[in-house]
Design a protein around this nucleic acid. Structure first.
Lengths: 336, 336
DNA sequence: ATGAAAGCGCTAACAG
DNA sequence: CTGTTAGCGCTTTCAT
């Protein structure tokens, strides 16, 4: 508690100016005499003075920090998704010289919005009330990867439906007819929409996605393994010739399980993932996947929030980023 | 800028009490009449009032948020290490109701220490000056995983030297004589100490660690792959029969590379990792590894910092946490 | 148990 | 260009 002993007054005294002038050099006002400026700077250096951020924020009403609230469910930090968000948001904050107030919330203990100038919600699972409160509160908000059309709020998301469609299209292009999927957590929009787009496209092409070709996973490797076991229980002639795993992590597990069962990828079975997770780059076979611009989405969310906070942007913005097919080696035409 | 319209005064007015009383219920003072308390609570609810955190901090001098400074080098967020730290620190902060101010620093743009009550440094690479400034500043600090004995500061680290020794001991127990290592980044203490302990122990047992059995990696999968290529260039009779990879990620890559070269793990070659990274759990062979209590270390760092901030702890504390051997399937006795 | 008043350290008009 | 003077919204003595 003994820190922050020296204040702007000490600096002013030593520099022989008023505290206002000190404040001005602190905030880079152009209207300060070079002479005064250098005296103040000397005093600042002398005391190693750091302005009290709380006082600055209180007096100016400007808060150069943004909040990131993440759902608190276990395993969240093990996902490529969460990490990329943190990375992108952290990076963008650094660029805009904003502090990042990181808040893990299970829906209770919401982030006090006066702590920050605006809030980014990494998805809204468990946090709907908090989002609504922030909106009512007029705190600028951006929601990531959840098209919250029923809320009056800005969001920026990946086009997961399109991603699912593109996967289906790609697999069909090889001539596959028995196509299966191991979904992500269907409580998330990403999981639900990927599956939805995938299924719709398959149906449009009269191929369809019967129940036995759907395994409802949860993005975990374990669920992928179980999914494969399910598919392997089908008669050989009925087994899928291609599998869409809703994440690269799961796709890798699918490949591993298949290989353990003596099947070759892509000769015996095609596998496609979703993410383009570099951690999955080094495997027995190069993974074909859908790249989603997570890092960019994260960065953009910060920039959008910042423009909302500063008032440069008045309207709520809705952005949908397209994913991109990355062809490597794990997909091929079915045998005979 | 139009937010935070309602202040403690509005609440006081509606509840027909002074702002002091409102402040008291806000801070859970016991000396408030039940009647007054409920009136204030009603008013707070009515206005959906949230106290201005900056004003609270300025007035009270107490700042319920802690800073986490992470080195800004690329790839940091792809490491299991960083993620576990963030997870553990985030979790502990949640428990202590502290906000986490996340600050990525390349050594310039230091975190203004008035923003937070104390700072946790995730390693001190590139950030030494910042640590020194914080110490001079009397800002409570905890350094993670770097035994900074030359600095007057608290730290909490994994016993990486011991880890290296334990690995060597374990490998020797199988009768291995030709033992190699692919190190982590030797600029980090973790990389350097693991290697050091490993080497020392081998030398103590008269086995030694010749140059051709050392590949200096950097924790990346790529470096592990190159390391394996190096070892494979040795004459078959001179090749190592066991390899210590300084991270699980690298160990997995070693196994994959070996298998691609037609060698079996652990029959032809033993492989041991470091981390006990659950993402490496599902592989062709269960990975034997050294578990390090990263999550615990992260949590402990928060608790330590908090006790330093609140003054419950006056002295600098130095903690070294032992790693633990996790035996799975990737190590075995050498052939013949 | 409650309220009045004095700040916390800084910024922002407004004069000069 | 610089200084004076009010606050920013809350906590904290100190009376009562």
């Amino acid at each position: 508690m003994t820190k922050q002993k020296i204040s702007i007054e000490d600096v002013a005294r030593r520099a022989n100016v008023s505290i206002t002038t000190v404040s001005r050099v602190l905030n880079n006002f152009p209207t300060v005499t070079p002479k005064n400026r250098s005296r103040v700077e000397e005093a600042i250096a002398f005391f190693k003075f750091k302005p009290n951020v709380n006082a600055q924020r209180l007096a100016s009403g400007v808060n150069n920090s943004i909040g990131l609230v993440m759902p608190g469910y276990p395993g969240i930090f093990h996902s490529f998704y969460a990490i990329e968000l943190i990375r992108g948001i952290g990076h963008a904050c650094e660029g805009l010289r904003q502090d990042l107030v990181f808040h893990i919330s299970d829906g209770n203990n919401p982030l006090n919005s006066t702590t920050v100038s605006g809030i980014i919600f990494a998805d809204v699972i468990e946090n709907r009330k908090q989002v609504e409160a922030a909106i009512a509160n007029e705190t600028p908000c951006v929601i990531i990867n959840n098209e919250s059309k029923d809320l009056d709020v800005s969001y920026i998301a990946i086009d997961n439906r399109l991603g699912g469609e593109m996967v289906a299209d790609y697999l069909i292009s090889f001539g596959h007819q028995r196509i299966a999927t191991i979904t992500g957590n269907l409580n998330t929009q990403s999981g639900a929409f990927r599956m939805e787009g995938f299924k719709k496209f398959l149906e449009k092409k009269n191929i369809g996605l019967p129940k036995e070709y759907i395994y409802i996973g949860d993005y975990s490797r374990r669920s992928a393994r179980v999914g494969v076991e399910q598919f392997l229980k089908l008669e050989p002639g009925k087994r899928p010739t291609a599998i869409f795993a809703a994440s690269d992590d799961m796709a890798l597990e699918v490949i591993a399980s298949m290989m353990e069962a003596g099947l070759k990828v892509p000769e015996d079975i095609s596998v496609i993932g979703f993410d383009d997770n570099p951690a999955c780059l080094y495997g027995p076979v190069g993974l074909t996947t859908m790249r989603q611009p997570l890092f960019k989405m994260a960065e953009d969310s910060v920039r959008l929030l910042h423009s909302l906070v500063t008032g440069k942007q008045k309207k709520k913005i809705h952005t949908i980023l397209p994913p991109e097919l990355v062809v490597r080696e794990s997909c091929n035409a079915p045998r005979n």
